[in-house]
Design a protein around this nucleic acid. Structure first.
Lengths: 173, 173
DNA sequence: TGCAAAAGTGAGTAATCGCTTACAAAAATA
DNA sequence: TATTTTTGTAAGCGATTACTCACTTTTGCA
């Protein structure tokens, strides 16, 4: 990966995440990256290819958050790690996570499939702990995670800690 | 309101909700409404005015959902009505609610302030019921509601009922 | 009925869109 | 070093964008 390629991805991520996909033109990206516009199309074929490259490049960030949960065997730890998941997100990665939400609604590109292993791990954990509806419990908890992530990325300052502590107590953790 | 004005609002709502704001051109709206493009600007000044008119026109739908909760005095009923809120949404209004979410992420126009009275009612209800952290409890529940709404509008078929039943049980309702 | 205001049209605007192409510089390979 | 390949640029492409304007039709009211 060339230095200019990195600049492009970096500028595009920031602009897509802040202004949105359609509101960000390729010329804007080029200008922000200090690069000729044609170079974007040389490396990424088209605008869609650019955003896909960003998503692929960020895949590792997704996995690093999830793998810790999926690998955990202790069911209580699975719940605890899931609930506190958003606190593990590096603020320098906020743009990337914001982009995930934006794309979900603007382009209806959903990263929900990436959450599937987490959901399975959760359902399994709830089952082990004797919950009556492990599948629904897992769905509900994931809804919460998405919600707290959303408010973390949109809100000005969000004391997610208070809510997270509350939820931990509700699940006896 | 003229017949053609209604057609414009109706077409714009459907397109904005399905394709997104920036992905929908004014000429598309005009074509879908069976109207000359100039008419849009006569009535709504510009594209932003158009989407604002849609939001204003839909305000009643927002209020009708919330007023039932805010007016309720029995704290348990406040919780029950909040949790089952999304089941009261008319499927013909899905486009409008979808637009709310889309605008939140695409234009960062958030309708969260509209939820504030509900949050207050919830906090009050939790307080009456002896919960230790009424404010956080209210926040948490609203996160769940938004999550359920989100999955209701994005998912293909969503058995929200199961999750709603589960939530009702968790709050002893 | 007359007439002004409102509703509606369609052709037009400059600007910007995503993208291509012809070409030059740099890097890699031989 | 010679040559191929990759990286990068600048100009410009047709199409589309949000929006305007001169104009006609319809409507409401004295």
């Amino acid at each position: 990966m060339t230095e200019k390629q990195e600049k492009i991805l970096q500028a595009a991520l920031q602009l897509f995440a802040c202004e949105g996909y359609h509101a960000t033109s390729t010329s804007k990206v080029a200008k922000a990256a200090g690069v000729s516009e044609g170079l974007i199309f040389r490396h990424y074929k088209n605008k869609e290819g650019l955003v896909m490259a960003i998503l692929e490049e960020g895949e590792s960030r997704l996995k690093s958050l999830f793998v810790d949960i999926v690998m955990e065997t202790d069911p209580k730890e699975v719940l605890r790690k899931t609930i506190t998941m958003t606190t593990k997100i590096d603020p320098s990665d906020y743009d990337f996570w914001k982009l995930q939400f934006k794309l979900k609604w603007e382009l209806e590109i959903s990263g929900d499939k990436k959450m599937e292993p987490v959901k399975m791990a959760l359902a399994n954990a709830f089952h082990k702990l004797g919950y009556q509806l492990p599948g629904s419990e897992a769905k509900l908890l994931i809804l919460f995670i998405e919600g707290i992530g959303s408010s973390l990325l949109t809100g000005p300052e969000t004391n997610q800690d208070e809510i997270i502590q509350l939820l931990l107590k509700k699940y006896d953790l």
